[in-house]
């Protein structure tokens, strides 16, 4: 029973040497001019320090997250096979459901400010390289987004399997943060989240805003209308709508929480206060805010495009 509660190892920790080697390789490719790789020293330092800080923050909240997941599993509604060949079916089901959970989490993290505040630091670099992948959240544990994974435990997936699958998803998403890979073969681009799809996700061009939330499988974006393909005639401009003015790690980690606090103090009604915290990022009481929906609509009106084209 205990084996099913606690993963015997942390797959992400095991992958750290591979992360380092791949970053060194990517820098090498850029240095040799074999791939369009760009690194800025201070940007890289900020990204990597955010990654280091997120591991510390993760340890501080790991007890609560782990305890809650184990508690949920003790109250599960199904006893899923966890021994022998039937375990394969459990893993496949978990793979799909965890990836769907990640999609929901990621979409929430972009479309509602309380969760965006914890996620925005991942997007605050104007660069897109493997170091950007490590620009992880410091406050993701305190905004309760981990609660989204509890239904998996209630359903009957053992906590150890859930944590391993979450780790696999995180590791998969590392390598797609690169400009060194142009496009994969079409069948893979159709099913998987790829460097091309994820470049779109990190872009701040209005056409690309709040698109491609996928973890491993891009099919969720295709199903739920949030897919946008990378276009050769519109290169990605990376970062956030209003880029940060320096490389300060603390600013990168906390600036949106600061902005929420400022907007809460300026709120003139309960509705304004609620929207300042839980509204879409960029929301303003006067209706003139730069939300992703508004930015895309204004851009579409300017260029005569469809702001929400049908998914390819």
């Amino acid at each position: 029973m205990k084996d099913l509660e606690h993963a015997p190892f942390d797959v992400v920790t095991l992958a750290v040497p591979a992360f380092v080697l791949l970053i060194v390789l990517e820098i090498g490719l850029g240095w040799l001019k074999r791939a369009p790789v760009r690194y800025e020293t201070r940007d890289t330092a900020t990204s990597l320090l955010l990654g280091l800080g997120s591991t510390v923050a993760g340890v501080l909240t790991a007890g609560i997250v782990g305890g809650a997941t184990i508690w949920a599993w003790h109250h599960r509604i199904l006893d899923l096979p966890v021994a022998g060949w039937p375990t394969v079916g459990t893993w496949i089901a978990l793979f799909l459901l965890e990836d769907l959970t990640y999609y929901v989490f990621h979409r929430l993290s972009h479309e509602r400010r309380f969760w965006w505040a914890a996620h925005v630091n991942h997007h605050s670099s104007q660069h897109y390289n493997l170091s950007t992948a490590l620009r992880q959240s410091w406050t993701g544990g305190v905004n309760g987004s981990w609660l989204l994974w509890l239904p998996l435990a209630f359903l009957g997936f053992p906590p150890a399997m859930i944590f391993v699958q979450k780790g696999i998803s995180l590791i998969y998403q590392f390598w797609i943060h690169t400009e060194a890979v142009r496009r994969l073969p079409a069948p893979l681009e159709y099913v998987l989240n790829t460097p091309s799809h994820h470049r779109v996700h990190h872009a701040r061009n209005p056409r690309y805003l709040d698109r491609n939330y996928a973890g491993i499988l891009i099919i969720w974006d295709r199903m739920f209308g949030s897919f946008e393909a990378e276009r050769d005639d519109e290169p990605c401009r990376y970062g956030i709508v209003r880029n940060l003015g320096d490389f300060n790690v603390l600013r990168a980690a906390f600036h949106e929480w600061w902005a929420i606090g400022r907007d809460l103090l300026a709120a003139r009604s309960l509705r304004q206060a609620v929207m300042a915290v839980f509204g879409p990022p960029g929301w303003r009481a006067d209706g003139q805010g730069d939300t992703a929906v508004a930015l895309r609509a204004r851009w579409a009106a300017r260029v005569g495009a469809d702001p929400n084209p049908p998914a390819a």
Partner: peptide
């Protein structure tokens, strides 16, 4: 172990930042 892991990670960070700097591949 966690502090050891943290220390090793910090060492790797220094290595990667130095490499990024030496490579001189900004936009």
């Amino acid at each position: 172990p966690f502090l050891l892991q943290l220390g090793v990670s910090a060492g790797f960070i220094v290595l990667m930042v130095v490499l990024a700097s030496v490579a001189k591949i900004p936009r």
